[in-house]
Design a protein around this nucleic acid. Structure first.
Lengths: 338, 338
DNA sequence: CGGCCATGTTGCAACGTTGCATTCAGCGTT
DNA sequence: AACGCTGAATGCAACGTTGCAACATGGCCG
């Protein structure tokens, strides 16, 4: 139930220290003693008290994951992979949600409840780089996404400009010319949308087209409803798009929803491309073309960064800037018109 | 950075104990002293060391959430709500995934890394009641879903039989007669599917119909692909359903996908109803009729149960069996045919 | 035969916090 | 004047673990 080293030691007839040695495998213990202690351990079902171990070691075995929200598919999938990967390193993940609130991000970064976690993986939504500095000096921090904290934290992300360029180019290749962009977030200190917009512009210009302001719609958040609202505005504005590049799959699904409601055929009247590679898209009607970041690799690399810094804090390796691969998965929502 | 009570005490010129009193608000401290200590606290940016506090208090402030998988929308949404509700109680949630693996559930229930959490919320997928007993005697456990551990753990769930009955009755009311059921899991020790099947049978019988074995399809897991597979088999079998009641929304979305691929019109040729009320369903094409459990209330009640047991372990109140409300949200996927 | 080393085992101390009991001064009551 | 009482501040001990150094024991070498 709540056996301590002390209890095991008493049962095995040895000192506390020897039991500790058996448990941790350190020091040298005679084979016979080890067997006796092990028997006692098993009999009492000993489990180490983490609080005590952590107090001693100065580590908690916990890593924090700070994301906008768990219920959005992209972050749900990513969190699942991170938890899974962390288990393999016998770390436990504690999750906090910011709901895109900069204030919450700041609070969590500074550490709400005290020095709890050994490291932090944060996907900042509206936090400026300089605001990240304070905590990054304290414990290892890995940033997911576009924000950089030069010289202070590792960062893992896809090449958004390139990916957006590819997505837009794909639409151009299928003969579309009036390609809308949904997902600008001019009110946030967040480079993600800006970079995807840049890739979109780059592709258009390379094709000899001039980006049309009327085809670029901002959104407040990145949920399906925001995509639906943007799509509605877009259609009502008379901008007459023949394709939509949404900066996230959720936005794309919202747009798809409105397209159906308005009687537009997809992809014949309107092609749609999203970004994130969430599972929903595969089963949408029609299945959604999307840019798929290698989420498994994002999780793995982020944890690798943390491990490197946590286990060798002395070595001040300069923060790495890791670009993980992505691929454009073409599905029915953007097949060539006709 | 890493200031301790000791450091604050030195700066304020008082004893460690007094600083502790100021921090915790216990004991009596002169106003002047309190102000001086507070100033020192602020100046050093003191944060309590949780490991030490927990070691002393015998509590960790952590609660465990054990679910099949985070990336499925239902559990993602539920986990999000639980994390949010836990924050309000200044608890931190650690999440473990079992991937529906009974072995993993068992391991996590017994506590992999030791006595880490103060309480456990577990959504067992293939664990028998008697296997739940061991840990439930040790720390408070709340079960989500159909498994019961009579006399050992609180339980929070919707009335699955009633809900399934309502969903099926709704399909009957719209004139369907050959209503398929997708989602049986005969290989698992899990009552959820069984109860939903029971409600489905009950509704059919009340309408004077005899359940047709050929219309009931088992699935291996509860993902979209399993729903798609079941739907494919169903259509290939020549069973000719005019409606589908899927035991989860994901299954329903998979079925919807196949229906589209086969050129069936929904809801004209085939009505579809799901279960879980996930956000995807609202934006599916056509929007998915679904049974919506009050997830917010599930989260709130589960935490309330834990709080009651953690903070007054002496009072051995008999475990409660909480039924949270649900509602059938009718959308286009099951509007009356014609 | 004495000193040295390897092996096995042990005790002490410390990690930072809080419960309990103690101390001390000042004040009112008998 | 002696007493008890309250408010304020403190010291000691303990939570369970592990690093460090010390300690026995016995075998080996010089």
């Amino acid at each position: 139930m709540s056996s301590r080293l002390k209890d095991v030691a008493a049962l095995a007839g040895v000192s506390i220290r020897t039991v500790s040695n058996v448990v941790s495998g350190s020091g040298s213990v005679a084979e016979e003693t080890r067997a006796r202690v092990q028997a006692a351990l098993d009999e009492l079902g000993y489990r180490p008290n983490l609080a005590a171990r952590n107090l001693r070691a100065g580590r908690t075995g916990l890593i924090g994951l700070v994301i906008p929200e768990l219920h959005s598919p992209y972050f749900g999938e990513l969190a699942g992979l991170l938890v899974e990967a962390a288990q393999q390193r016998s770390w436990t993940v504690v999750i906090d949600q910011t709901f895109g609130d900069g204030e919450a991000e700041r609070r969590l970064l500074e550490g709400t409840g005290g020095r709890v976690v050994d490291g932090l993986i944060i996907s900042p939504w509206s936090l400026r780089p300089d605001e990240l500095t304070a905590r990054a000096r304290d414990i290892p921090v890995v940033l997911l996404g576009e924000q950089r904290a030069p010289g202070l934290a590792d960062r893992v992300a896809v090449d958004n400009v390139l990916a957006a360029d590819e997505a837009t180019t794909h639409l151009l290749d299928t003969g579309r010319r009036r390609i809308a962009a949904i997902g600008l977030q001019p009110h946030l200190h967040n480079d993600t949308a800006r970079q995807r917009l840049e890739g979109y512009h780059r592709a258009l210009r390379r094709a000899g087209l001039t980006p049309d302001e009327a085809l670029q719609r901002p959104v407040r958040a990145l949920h399906r409803e925001d995509g639906a609202r943007a799509m509605t505005e877009l259609l009502d504005s008379g901008a007459r798009p023949d394709a939509v590049f949404a900066f996230t799959d959720e936005l794309a699904l919202g747009a798809l929803h409105v397209a159906h409601a308005r009687g537009l055929r997809v992809p014949e009247d309107l092609a749609v491309v999203g970004f994130d590679g969430i599972e929903d898209g595969r089963y949408a009607y029609p299945p959604l073309t999307t840019v798929v970041p290698d989420k498994k690799q994002i999780a793995a690399r982020a944890l690798q960064c943390l491990a490197d810094r946590i286990y060798s804090p002395a070595a001040s390796v300069p923060p790495s800037d890791i670009v993980v691969p992505h691929r454009l998965e073409v599905r029915d929502s953007s097949r060539p018109a006709g």
